[in-house]
Amino acid sequence: MKPRMSEPVRKRRVWIGFVVLFVLINPWYFASDAGSTLVLGIPVWALTVLGASLLLSIFITWTIKTQWQTDSDELYGG
């Protein structure tokens, strides 16, 4: 009996979310002299990257909770 598999890699929404967030955690969209704009002593570009990174962590949580289900434990113990 083969296990039933619902996995992130086969979901279009996961790929779209991953690509968008991967693009955002690379700070290519800031000018290379953008360090002078600060909020709370942190450059805005760095805060943006941190925000995108947090979104990626939240996206990972959502993906694990909703896009990954198998019945391998029922079939093979666990």
């Binding site: 296990p3 598999m5 996995e7 992130p8 890699v9 996961v14 991953f18 990626l56 962590s57 990972i60 993906t63 694990i64 990954w68 198998t70 391998s72 434990d73 079939l75 093979y76 113990g77 666990g78």
Partner: peptide, 18 residues
């Protein structure tokens, strides 16, 4: 690292059990 896990861990876990 965790994002990359999501591309192979679901299958590898199931195969590891099987």
């Amino acid at each position: 690292i965790i994002m990359v896990y999501l591309f192979f861990a679901p299958r590898l876990y199931a195969l590891g059990r099987r």
